[in-house]
Measured scan of single mutants.
Amino acid sequence: MPSETPQAEVGPTGCPHRSGPHSAKGSLEKGSPEDKEAKEPLWIRPDAPSRCTWQLGRPASESPHHHTAPAKSPKILPDILKKIGDTPMVRINKIGKKFGLKCELLAKCEFFNAGGSVKDRISLRMIEDAERDGTLKPGDTIIEPTSGNTGIGLALAAAVRGYRCIIVMPEKMSSEKVDVLRALGAEIVRTPTNARFDSPESHVGVAWRLKNEIPNSHILDQYRNASNPLAHYDTTADEILQQCDGKLDMLVASVGTGGTITGIARKLKEKCPGCRIIGVDPEGSILAEPEELNQTEQTTYEVEGIGYDFIPTVLDRTVVDKWFKSNDEEAFTFARMLIAQEGLLCGGSAGSTVAVAVKAAQELQEGQRCVVILPDSVRNYMTKFLSDRWMLQKGFLKEEDLTEKKPWWWHLRVQELGLSAPLTVLPTITCGHTIEILREKGFDQAPVVDEAGVILGMVTLGNMLSSLLAGKVQPSDQVGKVIYKQFKQIRLTDTLGRLSHILEMDHFALVV
């Protein structure tokens, strides 16, 4: 994948999101292997301009796509893939009243899908469409860049269908997702969380590099694949309309690839034109409109599966009536509230959605109805927002919020430890010299600072030695090549209790 991002070429006709291997024109390309080798690009942008032909009021008969309808489940399912879809609609009884809503608040519980998330729908649909058009064949390999849930859905379907599955996901995604993927037989590649989507090191860039190296491999490409919004247009939206008897006044959905909100909203605009569509985008993402909503100094966020630093091709923002931004604290607070007060075992993005819903639905009156999409299960986040310690460490809970008995030293300040200034190293000294210094002084790690004293990161003896043994660096290389740029900081005025929580999850903390 090139470091400079080429513009994806656009073909003359058809839909841009065809499933299957992508040609340089962004659509299915038939021909000899030699032709494909000559024409197939190194990668295709996940934010390529959409060429979708959908228009409100256009006859369904003019759609270029294969459409399906929700099917009634048999008493005995032939395999677990038949437990994807037909998820329950559940009334939220307490939270709406707590925040003064007059309307009825309903939750579409997508964590009841077989793999635990709304992404099971698009995973199965992308595979079925690729099999139907002859792209996927027995023994082929599926590769997908994902925040985890699409990966789980694909790995689940691949396990049943017999495909090899490789999932490329950023490091910030939970260990629970990784464990589930491994249990399903998927191979996992992790990428830096802070890598831009168009960087060769991003999950998108690495996935395309693997595709170019592995024979008979395919990126189904949830960011561009029409099967993504079509899955929701054909099934999720129809289920909502049936469950609500066609009567709903507002739908609120958090947005990642945009397939969920695009597919549902398009069908609702056709069948229930008075329904307002509300999009939820986390602070630090750029999906919301108008652009002024996205202006923030924050560039990272903890909530998973929603928000991006690019506009995915499948996201149709014209069908969203209003956007709201959400933050991590309210997302996790509301997710825990949904679990504790409503018994809905949902993930953090569901918290984002409901946090926005109780604001947006203030305009609705008694007798009206708001539906929220709860995308995934708490299963993926047992060591994250479900953990009091994690919430404390991230600053989303305060010590006084917890009532468990603490040891005698818990409320003492870090400054009472009488710490001395640490050994520091410059980023320009060599790895070999740094190892000598650390061994001589008896230290395992040291902060790396520039000549102005600005902290650049941390270097550890173990990481340097393993990097040297693996051949990633040489003793003569500058130590700046092996620094940890993500590390926890703590102030002298913070409590030892807070430091204790940090050290339970990290090997060190830097006192500043």
Rank of each mutant, 00 (worst) to 15 (best):
H218I: 12
G20R: 12
M173P: 03
I84N: 07
E213H: 03
H22C: 12
G26M: 07
P2C: 12
K102H: 07
P16G: 10
P12Q: 10
V255I: 06
K75I: 04
G85K: 06
P200T: 08
L241E: 03
A159H: 06
L28P: 10
A159K: 06
G185M: 00
W54C: 06
P192N: 04
S123V: 04
S32K: 05
I166T: 11
P74A: 14
P21T: 13
R164C: 11
A237E: 06
A48V: 13
H65P: 05
E29S: 13
K102R: 13
S217N: 06
T146N: 05
A69G: 13
I92S: 08
S202H: 06
E62R: 04
I92T: 09
W208R: 08
E176A: 07
S217R: 01
G115K: 07
E128K: 08
L251A: 08
S3V: 12
S202M: 03
S23Y: 10
I188E: 04
S199G: 04
A157P: 06
C109D: 02
A38F: 11
G14C: 04
S254D: 01
I44T: 11
P49W: 13
C244V: 13
D238S: 13
A158F: 01
S227K: 10
S50W: 06
I264C: 13
E29N: 12
R125Y: 08
R51S: 10
A195C: 13
D238G: 10
C275M: 09
K82N: 14
V189F: 02
P215H: 10
Q7W: 04
L210P: 00
G259V: 01
G11E: 10
R58C: 07
T146P: 05
E201H: 09
A159L: 05
E4A: 11
R125G: 07
F197V: 03
R276S: 03
Y163S: 00
R132C: 14
V204E: 09
K119P: 01
P41L: 15
G151S: 03
D35I: 11
K269S: 03
G256Y: 00
K98S: 15
S3N: 14
L230F: 15
A186D: 06
N228M: 03
D140N: 03
A69T: 12
S217W: 00
D86K: 10
C15P: 09
E144W: 04
G205T: 08
H65S: 00
S73Q: 12
G139D: 04
